[in-house]
Design a protein around this nucleic acid. Structure first.
Lengths: 160, 160
DNA sequence: TCATGTTACCGAATTTTCTTCGACGATATT
DNA sequence: AATATCGTCGAAGAAAATTCGGTAACATGA
């Protein structure tokens, strides 16, 4: 699937305004509503876009603690990786998990109602591979730049 | 603003299915469409929810490199923090930035078209406070658990 | 060159959804 | 008991989404 300027524009707008109406979107990209809807459908079916999420302002909803963790495994076997990954995936408080190259194996982002509960989660992650996991916790103080989509302009500038 | 069960339910559904129609949402939470719309409006006006974003599948759209960085400032003055923050905010390739407690000062997530361009961004960030910034780069290998919203059930269980 | 197939577009018609509005009931207050 | 407040419902009008031909542009191959 190749992306022309219009489809890139659709992706770019939709990624930042997921609840825009099809008509408004069509106007913005210069298509009729029906054509625009066709494109959006195809982009969705091709898996280029979706799911659609809303940002919640957690601070206004409840008390919570957000922690970013670096994780190193002493045993870097495939099995160890798999075990740790499925533990991360199965715990809803772990809201994000990456495997990375370099001095760490994983980055996690964890959200818990309070420190006591965070500690429980931390212990649980340590127990997945007893004695073989090294976790450093970093409490989030401020969210300087919340995620608001990828810079498609910068990423696609070569292929313009 | 206090949240009853219905409003929590709305937040929870909307955060994972931002493009759901008001009618469907009303059915799911057991309200009439008009009442449901009222609530959504109030939640938006109160700033509890929004903006609405779409996940893009970057891998299918273009080649790109994703890097998570840990950053330490040698000079931990307020001015140094401010300088680094505004540098992070002004560069679109820096898609996320947190300040944290512990052995690091910042976590960044950076997306660039290739390593050469990533290197440029890295250099730029180092030049903000010459000789006073320590950056460790960790190339993302896999996204084990992409962010799909906060675990409201776990966060609000006390207040049920 | 011409025919054919493909693709994507538009615009009209239909269906669905949104939005507003007035009325009703529950609850709390005076 | 009377009043006020809040949130609900349901109906009606407005807006949006969706479907469905019809058409133009382009590529392919005879």
């Amino acid at each position: 699937m190749q992306l022309d300027r219009i489809s890139r524009n659709i992706l770019s707008i939709l990624q930042q305004e997921a609840r825009i109406t099809n008509q408004d979107l069509a106007n913005r990209v210069g298509l009729s509503p029906s054509s625009c809807l066709n494109r959006v459908r195809k982009l969705e079916e091709a898996g280029l876009i979706g799911p659609y999420l809303s940002n919640l302002n957690l601070a206004k909803i409840c008390r919570s603690v957000e922690v970013i963790c670096t994780v190193s495994l002493k045993d870097q076997s495939t099995d160890a990786f798999r075990s740790f990954q499925s533990a991360a995936q199965s715990h809803p408080e772990v809201v994000e998990c990456y495997t990375v190259s370099g001095t760490f194996d994983f980055f996690l982002r964890i959200v818990a109602p309070d420190m006591a509960r965070y500690n429980d989660i931390n212990d649980m992650l340590l127990d997945v591979l007893p004695g073989m996991v090294n976790i450093s916790s970093h409490v989030v103080l401020t969210n300087v730049k919340p995620f608001r989509g990828y810079p498609l302009d910068a990423l696609l500038e070569q292929t313009l």
